[in-house]
Design a protein around this nucleic acid. Structure first.
Length: 334
DNA sequence: TATTCGTGGGA
DNA sequence: TTCCCAAGAAT
């Protein structure tokens, strides 16, 4: 793989609206376009960059997908696995995947069912299917190399705004706003002064992330990784370790006295008794069986036949399960 | 915009 | 034990 070339995507600049914010002529001067996004008194980008990046240099975890030998494919595999799944559970599966399928074409040559099986219990197995599909698309459309262009990345199955930016940034050193749940929380606290970010990513958050992004691509990539790591290790959701935070003194939330979240409690996803749990039970049976499974075996995975059938049909519709002519079931193409 | 989609570990 | 919630994407 070649080293980082010039960023191919358009720099995330110029999207900020002209100042012209009415009614603030009496207030202190602020940079254009920061109105409504950055509260008065919030730390400037320069106050945050140094401490956060220095902290990262000293405290970054040695994760396999951060090592140079991981390559863009390793970064992409890790990003898929880390979507909603903790690092500790991803580690062993990641190692196994890269050992088995060191290049996208290796995975593409495999059946989708094998990808689902090797996904193990990481959860959300559709990600395995999408990663397999992404590998196939990379093999077919990109000569077997993970594309560098943000636009091409976004076109791959399972790659959304976050993952496209993460791969472009971490694998290729490009300048992109990388907005994951960690970064959103760090910005919400340090800059906006809120304990938690909004439920869904807002335009204001994207704008803020772009404004905080260092100009130099390499520095921007470093900043992206550093803010994520800070959110993962220090500025955690439940009990942040503000005593060890490199920007605790600049933090708007700390300065405001760390006020508790106001408003309606954030919805917690239920799981017990849902279709998701049933799907999980059914798929676990199929994952662990090398031979196709008769319907009677699946019947034992869940009591309620109505819900069981609904879940099975969902799995079939998603392409996670295949029904053979003889009525037995298996992972797709396995 | 709101839902759906797994799983397991820490507090 | 129960309750959160963990590097999102697709619809």
């Amino acid at each position: 793989m070649t080293a980082t070339s010039a960023p191919t995507s358009a720099p995330e600049r110029g999207a900020e609206p002209a100042p012209a914010a009415p009614g603030d002529s009496a207030g202190p001067a602020r940079p254009a376009g920061t109105t409504e996004t950055v509260p008065a008194g919030a730390p400037s980008p320069e106050e945050l960059h140094g401490p956060v990046v220095e902290w990262f240099d000293a405290n970054a975890r040695d994760l396999p997908w951060r090592r140079p030998e991981a390559g863009a494919w390793g970064v992409m595999v890790s990003e898929f696995m880390l979507q909603q799944t903790p690092v500790s559970r991803v580690l062993p599966v990641y190692e196994e995947w890269l050992r088995r399928w060191p290049r996208p074409a290796d995975l593409a040559a495999e059946s989708p069912g094998e990808a689902v099986r090797a996904w193990g219990r990481l959860g959300y197995p559709r990600r395995a299917l999408r990663l397999h599909g992404a590998a196939a698309a990379i093999a077919e459309r990109h000569g077997g190399d993970v594309p560098k262009d943000h636009h091409h990345l976004l076109a791959l199955p399972g790659v959304g705004e976050y993952t496209a930016a993460a791969v472009a940034s971490f694998a290729y050193g490009q300048r992109h706003a990388v907005l994951d749940t960690n970064v959103r929380r760090v910005f919400a606290r340090a800059v906006t002064g809120s304990q938690y970010p909004p439920n869904a990513t807002t335009a204001a958050e994207r704008k803020l992330a772009r404004m905080l992004l260092p100009e130099d691509p390499g520095t921007a990539a470093r900043w992206a990784a550093a803010t994520m790591e800070l959110g993962a290790l220090v500025c955690t959701a439940r009990t942040p370790r503000c005593g060890t935070c490199p920007i605790a003194r600049q933090c708007a939330w700390q300065r405001a006295g760390a006020p508790e979240h106001e408003g309606p409690p954030r919805r917690v996803q239920t799981y017990a008794g849902t279709d998701r749990q049933v799907r999980g039970k059914l798929l676990a049976v199929l994952r662990e069986s090398l031979a196709p499974v008769p319907p009677a075996v699946l019947d034992q995975a869940w009591r309620d036949p109505v819900q069981r059938l609904r879940a099975l049909n969902g799995l079939l519709a998603d392409g996670l399960v295949e029904r053979l002519p003889d009525g037995r079931f298996r992972l797709p193409g396995a």
